[in-house]
Design a binder for these strands. Structure first.
Lengths: 228, 228
DNA sequence: TATTATTTAAAATTTATGTTTGAATCATTC
DNA sequence: GAATGATTCAAACATAAATTTTAAATAATA
């Protein structure tokens, strides 16, 4: 039935496609360039994947899987470690994964968020949901029982924001080489360290507010709103 | 010398261009559609702006200026108010500006960060620098004299991340209407309130670490590194 | 060797969009 | 109210590219 030793053209295409899509986005990437970088014929994409769109989806999946494999999500922290340590592990892993120069999936995901093609919606959702669920339950653990669902949502997005946004800015700065960059993340260890300090204190503060039954006391003192 | 009452075609073009560029990005936006939405002839862009690229730049400037005008940066807080209050004001203003459905400049800027055309690098830099300077000095005030330059940089980017990223996610969720969204920011007041609580505590924690002459004590206890 | 998988080069197909132009229209000025 | 210049218009221009298909050639297995 012909399963000739895979000449890994498919693999080469996935890697080349990762590069090109990450550099130019879906629309500006050309199959010609992808095939060029993969040392493959121009027809290879259609033969192996059936078209540019299918290649795009499989490329993201491939890149994400590889990226997760390289940077295990728990950051090497035991499952039964205290939540603060587990958070530290996850953040280290996440930031490390994003800052990795070989990362493709995050870069592509950013483009997709800013200017969606719609092709990755399901793929990304299904791939990222499990990760987000874990972050969420960890956050609930740290926030304690008094925090509202909304507060948990906010803290979760605050944390992820601090992991996602700085690398984005860093990449952008590098591309516009005109500006000698102060380098947002010049020492990853120190960056994540400050990030954890900042985040744990932030979470604690929100938790303390919750314990006092304020929904984060602003100028307007609103009555408590317990989880839905 | 012919200064006929301006039929504000130019203005209409800037607004239409704002819409279209924010929806599709520079490359996928067509002057045809822009002129269409502006009820102008297809040649109008070239007549008034000299080309699509020049229109893009002027559109961003226009959108940014209008956006800043609608949401004054200090959030209505007195210049001599305590720094915590001034921070609250700035964050409210910033988030309000970004979440505003009429906002174009932020959306365009995000695309530019994720997938740069290069056309807005200077424009954006010059427009946003003054704002960032103020945030920076405010941050130094809150961090006190013991914090390193790097810590100030990190805290600044943490704060901005929490302001920038959540609205981005929210917009993305809305576009992919397939998913009934938990709505990250359903109550702006409460969101900024939690954000401020979180951020002030985070800043305080980093400041306390700095006072102890640790550069944000991670596992590795590094010697203090005072500001450059 | 028969059969299938894969690669190749070239052509087919499809689709577009920014820009220009020269005439027509409008508004102002003298 | 003619002259002048700003603005608008419809149509064509010019340039361009990029995905997909095809049919033949090659390589690899059984």
């Amino acid at each position: 039935m012909a399963h000739p030793k895979p000449p890994d053209t498919k693999e080469k295409l996935l890697n080349a496609a990762g590069e090109v899509f990450a550099e130019k986005g879906f629309r500006d990437a050309t199959v010609a360039e992808i095939c060029g970088r993969a040392d493959a014929n121009i027809a290879a994409v259609n033969y192996h994947f059936g078209g540019k769109e299918a290649l795009y989806q499989q490329t993201w999946r491939h890149a994400f899987a590889q990226s997760i494999r390289t940077h295990p999500q728990d950051g090497g922290v035991e499952r039964n470690a205290p939540p603060e340590e587990r958070l530290r592990g996850r953040v280290k892993a996440l930031v490390g994964r994003i800052v990795d120069e070989n990362n493709r999936d995050f870069v592509i995901a950013q483009m997709e968020f800013a200017n969606p093609t719609g092709l990755l919606a399901e793929v990304m959702e299904s791939a990222m949901n499990p990760l987000r669920q874990k972050t969420r339950s960890l956050m609930r653990e740290l926030l304690g029982p008094d925090a509202t669902e909304r507060q948990a949502t906010h803290c979760e997005i605050f944390l992820l924001s601090m992991c996602f946004h700085p690398p984005l800015i860093q990449r952008a700065r590098r591309r516009m080489k005109g500006i000698e960059s102060p380098a947002v993340i010049d020492d990853l260890e120190m960056f994540t360290s400050n990030l954890i300090t900042f985040a744990l204190a932030g979470i604690a503060a929100v938790r303390d507010n919750a314990r006092l039954n304020w929904d984060a006391g602003a100028g307007s003192t609103k009555a408590a709103e317990k989880a839905s």
